[in-house]
């Protein structure tokens, strides 16, 4: 067999070892009678097995050091981020502001208009734009704040 034939089968061996493709019947048959390709496979297998012959030393104190730094970092994160209770209170406050603003708009806009010599429509528009809408936005925003703060992660780390 010419070198091209050996190359083709040796490439198949590489693919099989790397997991690119499943070992083919033609390769199995070829290996039964081709000494150079048998040696190629043996050398490759030995190289792969050799990779398992390394044992790297790990500092026995590393795990404890990592655990301590994780604990400290977790405390720092808890201190800077709003807790669940604070978020709930903020939502309730935003809800109350929206409700009170709506009440003002419905019941007292006429009185306010009279006091400040304005048209009722102007007062209502002002209340909506400067009170009701902002408090409604806050009400909707607070629940998703934790998601926004955790969102900035590297592309490769997400959804592997």
């Amino acid at each position: 067999m010419g070198s091209d034939g050996h190359e083709r089968f040796q490439h198949m061996i590489d693919e099989s070892l790397a997991g690119t493709v499943q070992e083919e019947q033609s390769l199995r048959e070829h290996l039964q009678s081709c000494a150079p390709c048998q040696e190629y496979l043996a050398a490759s297998s030995r190289a792969i097995a050799g990779l398992g012959g390394f044992s790297f030393a790990v500092d026995p104190g590393l795990n404890a050091k990592v655990s301590a730094s994780l604990k400290l970092r977790a405390q720092q994160i808890r201190a800077t981020q709003p807790g669940r209770r604070q978020l709930v209170l903020s939502c309730i406050l935003a809800l109350m502001l929206t409700a009170v603003g709506s009440l003002f708009d419905l019941r007292l806009s006429g009185l306010i208009a009279t006091v400040f010599d304005l048209q009722r429509m102007q007062v209502q528009h002002g209340l909506i734009a400067l009170w009701i809408l902002p408090s409604l936005c806050l009400l909707l925003l607070f629940p998703i704040l934790p998601l926004l703060s955790a969102g900035g992660s590297n592309q490769n780390e997400r959804n592997l």
């Binding site: 590393l62 730094s69 994780l70 955790a150 780390e157």
Partner: peptide, 22 residues
């Protein structure tokens, strides 16, 4: 060792980006 420590800190900080599907 320093990189190992930084890696775990980042795992803590960005844990919410791991969805468990892989």
């Amino acid at each position: 060792d320093d990189l190992v420590q930084e890696t775990w800190l980042r795992v803590l900080e960005r844990g919410s980006s791991y969805d468990g599907r892989s």
